[in-house]
Write a protein that binds this DNA or RNA. Structure first.
Lengths: 390, 390
DNA sequence: TTTAATATTCAAGTAAGTTGAGTTATTAAG
DNA sequence: CTTAATAACTCAACTTACTTGAATATTAAA
């Protein structure tokens, strides 16, 4: 586990080395999504011999990635020694770059945030930001007394879309970043493996340690500057050819008989402008208004729920997820209200009588979902191995 | 290559056997998508040693899956011996079940159709259909003088959605199939590996041998009874948690200031009802009307293009594909017209100045795309190995 | 003609998973 | 209480598939 790029060796060909790497990740991922497991159970689920799993577990334990967790008796036979992911086995740095601020997180191997950082941005030039990221990283590592070499890598999250597209040139994009190779920039600066994605995708992965634990197919609606969608299919992010999948903000919805973009109705900005006469509202203020059932906010919620219901129908029919999770920069109270009040479309493939999961629910990652999600991009690489054969 | 279920051994764990199987598929897939390749080039693209590729190729050649294709000199050095997929190396059976008819295809390993079959259905009971499939299979094998043991497997395609959903109970679904395990039924009847999917997904895969050759991210709009969407992301079908992803028919679009489901405007049925006073029109009749620019058809095309443009925006922004392909049960002339006339939304992530592929194009699989696609489901298994770790 | 570059094979070496026998711990039955 | 059944786990030998490095062949450039 010391090789610099074990995190993503995506060469499709299999050889003993890479097979072992794959198997280590598979074992770790299995344990992670089950919480804890014994050798034999892991072997069955992966289709390996117990002996192979034994060897791999010995490896992972030596790497400090696993912890023994006592033994679990289940019926007859020798109780199985349980193993769990060692939270201190490794850490992931999450970096979220917004036009106005830089947010960072340090997340442990179990998906728990250990520290966060924040810096106001006046200058979004790439090298300036890289510098600030270095400082925040060192700060967080110091605060938690974590050795820098326990850092597995860094996930970088920026508002999409990437490259020059028909949606570029809006308030939310980062000037001067269209042509920058962010992965190379931060990989050099941090001297660690780096993954780059957009905020909604990353936030979706953060929920793998929360509301979507153990799920393989789900969608995540992310309240950021606008509204984004992260899609997980068969455990993998659907990022699209250029990393721009999930741009749901401009989805036309019908409000008061008129068509308008979804994020004009469903987003923090739209809530804030609907409540303009309350002054400038941050998330806590919105939370307060929601708890005291402010009539204007309730009106906004009614409209937003309506629009969200239409979007939900589109998402469900196009992706057929197990569930749709709401999260991001909105107070939990509002997200809960939306999850409760949004009309669930009847004409949907997700409208199944035997559904075991709610069709719409609130995520647990909180308002920093994207910042934690940035780190989750790295954890995801530690728990799964993806290779693109075609 | 004699093991009965080499086509899909999806156990995540890697061992020598499965690694070899994976590598064989990777080599075959690489050669298939490139047309022809030499050992060294394959080794580079897969991250294997040339020796390993040599051994694998010897295997594949012995299995009859590869053909030597002379040698290709490119600059200095020993010219590389080229290999191509042997079309006769294996065949896939494609089965499309519609409420009114049973369609079958026999497709060779290079993706070329060799034979098709058709039977009118009066009784859609599962065992009746299985019986007819057997007969059609034998007929096609006889016609092409192909030995039954060259049959790799069968792909079964049915109109979605699967299971009881909010979209069930429409004219297009198959009564009595909601609770049937179609995979088991046909796997028993045919004594071969079977893959089941819906028509649009399968049709999308058929284009891997046509308009989407070499592409890893594309969407396919399928004209069947209604309108379906097949999505390929990173070379893999996005099927959703229950296999029902891509139900785009009910997507609301705005026509003449009113919202209606997409397939009410964009589908063969809608074209036929728009031209009702011409009598009952089959595909050839539609083709004729299109070629002589029938004014009523032109009016329908204008409306359909408008609606299609709206749908295109949604598809592009949600999936960010390299291209969107049109196909299915519509004459090429109409699909071409649509591909040409559909307004390409400006506010789209696919609206990029540096795009190298057309955003919308007609597929090449023709009106039997889904029937061929059913077979492509099997070919896909022969060329790629997918494992679900999580 | 010589040199460099590239593809390919051969033979030996290595890493990883498998197999089958044997050990240990727990439950269930006699 | 004893014995049998069951399941997890380890040990040691075995098998498979990939890698490595040397050798050879063929082409283009110097």
């Amino acid at each position: 586990m010391t090789s610099s790029d074990f995190l993503f060796d995506s060469r499709p060909g299999a050889n003993p080395d890479r097979s072992r790497q794959r198997n280590k990740k598979a074992v770790l991922g299995q344990i992670n999504s089950a919480g804890q497991m014994g050798r034999a159970a892991i072997a069955r689920s992966l289709g390996l011999s117990t002996q192979a799993v034994s060897n791999i577990i010995a490896d992972l334990e030596a790497d400090g990635l696993l912890l023994e967790r006592g033994s679990h008796r289940a019926g007859r036979g020798l109780p199985a020694v349980q193993y769990a992911v060692n939270p201190n086995g490794g850490f992931a740095l999450g970096v979220e770059i917004r036009p106005d601020a830089l947010l960072t997180s340090l997340v442990d191997l179990s998906g728990q945030p250990r520290a966060t950082g924040r810096k106001v941005l006046t200058d979004v030039k790439p090298d300036k930001i890289a510098n600030k990221v270095l400082k925040l990283r060192d700060q967080m590592l110091r605060d938690c007394s974590i050795s820098p070499d326990r850092l597995l890598g860094a996930g970088i999250v920026m508002p999409g879309p990437f490259g020059a597209t028909g949606l570029s040139g809006q308030a939310s994009d980062l000037p001067g970043w269209q042509t920058v190779d962010a992965a190379a920039l931060f990989s050099d600066a941090l001297d660690r493996p780096v993954v780059v994605s957009n905020d909604a995708n990353a936030a979706a992965l953060a929920e793998r340690f929360g509301a979507a634990q153990g799920l393989t197919d789900y969608a995540f609606l992310y309240f950021g500057a606008g509204l984004g969608l992260g899609i997980v299919n068969r455990g993998q992010l659907v990022e699209g050819a250029f990393g721009n999948a999930g741009e749901i903000g401009r989805l036309p919805v019908c409000i008061d008989g008129k068509l308008g973009p979804l994020e004009q109705t469903v987003s923090r900005l739209s809530a804030q402008s609907a409540l303009a006469n309350h002054g400038v509202l941050d998330i806590d203020a919105l939370d307060h208004l929601c708890r005291c059932e402010d009539p204007e906010l309730m009106r906004w919620l009614a409209t937003a729920s309506d629009a969200l219901g239409q979007a939900l129908g589109v998402i469900e029919n196009l992706f057929d997820p197990q569930t749709v999770v709401l999260g991001g920069a909105m107070p939990a109270s509002i997200l809960d209200h939306l999850a409760r009040a949004t009309p669930l479309p009847k004409l949907s493939v997700s409208n199944r009588p035997d559904a075991s999961l709610p069709r719409l629910q609130r995520g647990t990652a909180g308002r920093m979902a994207a910042t934690f999600g940035a780190a989750a991009l790295i954890l995801n690489c530690a728990f799964t191995s993806q290779s693109t054969t075609l």
